[in-house]
Computed example of a mutant assay.
Amino acid sequence: MTLSAGVHLDRLAVVEECGLGYATDFAVLVYVTSSSTKMQKLVLRADFPPRDQYELVVEFSLDGRELGGRLTIDTQVVVFNPVTVAPFAPASNGSIIWRESHSTYLEGVGSQFPTDSEDFAITRPASADAAWTLRVDTSDMQALFVSAVRLTLNSGSSAVANMLRGSKAPASMALARFLEVDITRQLVEVALNCDEVAAESVEDSDEETVSAVLRSLLSTIWPGVPYETLRRWRDHDPARIDSQIQHARGLGVG
């Protein structure tokens, strides 16, 4: 994922309001936090040149394997080598004089665990024409969900590559929606095959474990429906399960 934005600095106005000398250095720092993967790091530092007015274009890339859940981007303009001309002026390196934070939930169940991409023709030639693979480790259902599940996308597929680039073409949008449906279908199947999920309490469970996240997924798609009823539908009326997954993920929405 590549993101970019412009940050404008009016040096004359800033130094006057902050009690700083014109020779003070200013920089933009961008911090990124991902709630599900617990990733938190500085992804960019860019320095402003010594000009009265300057529009700094910042651009950075994020590794999909580190992203999931709520993504927060914190952008700061900070002071370095401050030249103070007033008693109230920020005197320390790294003092923040402007800050803006944006948060968003990465859409869909697939955003709750790490995602990466590779060319299947190289890494798994027997599945070179597959679009993706989802691996779910159920050996420890109390493990963190983000460490037990991984989605790998086939970057060697032109259709998948277009989707990864954020194409808004109808074919790419349809593929992304089908990806969401397929991930959900596979996770539902895993959930309905695990007794640990059946024993999980929806109200009291730890939402970060494998069994809890899978139980929460079932209750989101089928609120109020008992686990044993879902198993019975899966065994005797699988079309009912599949159609509800499609409905929950909006597969039929144009």
Score class of each variant (00 low, 15 high):
residue 1 M to S: 11
residue 2 T to R: 14
residue 4 S to H: 11
residue 11 R to A: 05
residue 13 A to I: 01
residue 14 V to L: 15
residue 14 V to K: 12
residue 16 E to W: 10
residue 21 G to Q: 01
residue 25 D to E: 12
residue 26 F to M: 04
residue 27 A to L: 12
residue 29 L to T: 10
residue 38 K to W: 08
residue 39 M to L: 05
residue 41 K to R: 14
residue 42 L to R: 14
residue 46 A to S: 11
residue 47 D to L: 02
residue 47 D to V: 12
residue 49 P to L: 02
residue 51 R to K: 10
residue 53 Q to G: 06
residue 54 Y to L: 03
residue 59 E to Y: 00
residue 59 E to I: 01
residue 61 S to R: 15
residue 61 S to H: 10
residue 64 G to C: 08
residue 66 E to G: 02
residue 67 L to A: 05
residue 68 G to W: 06
residue 78 V to F: 02
residue 79 V to I: 12
residue 79 V to Q: 07
residue 80 F to I: 05
residue 81 N to A: 09
residue 83 V to E: 12
residue 85 V to S: 07
residue 88 F to E: 15
residue 89 A to W: 09
residue 91 A to L: 08
residue 97 I to F: 11
residue 100 E to M: 06
residue 102 H to T: 11
residue 108 G to A: 05
residue 109 V to T: 10
residue 110 G to K: 13
residue 110 G to H: 06
residue 112 Q to H: 06
residue 116 D to I: 00
residue 122 I to D: 12
residue 129 D to I: 02
residue 134 L to M: 12
residue 135 R to D: 13
residue 135 R to M: 08
residue 137 D to C: 02
residue 138 T to L: 05
residue 145 F to N: 07
residue 147 S to E: 15
residue 148 A to H: 05
residue 153 L to T: 04
residue 156 G to T: 03
residue 160 V to S: 10
residue 160 V to K: 10
residue 160 V to I: 14
residue 167 S to A: 13
residue 177 R to H: 03
residue 179 L to P: 01
residue 186 Q to P: 02
residue 193 N to S: 14
residue 194 C to G: 02
residue 199 A to D: 11
residue 200 E to Y: 10
residue 201 S to C: 05
residue 205 S to A: 14
residue 208 E to C: 00
residue 209 T to I: 07
residue 210 V to D: 05
residue 212 A to M: 04
residue 216 S to R: 15
residue 218 L to E: 01
residue 221 I to S: 08
residue 223 P to K: 12
residue 227 Y to Q: 00
residue 227 Y to H: 13
residue 229 T to I: 11
residue 232 R to D: 14
residue 235 D to L: 15
residue 241 I to A: 09
residue 243 S to T: 04
residue 245 I to K: 08
residue 245 I to M: 03
residue 254 G to A: 14
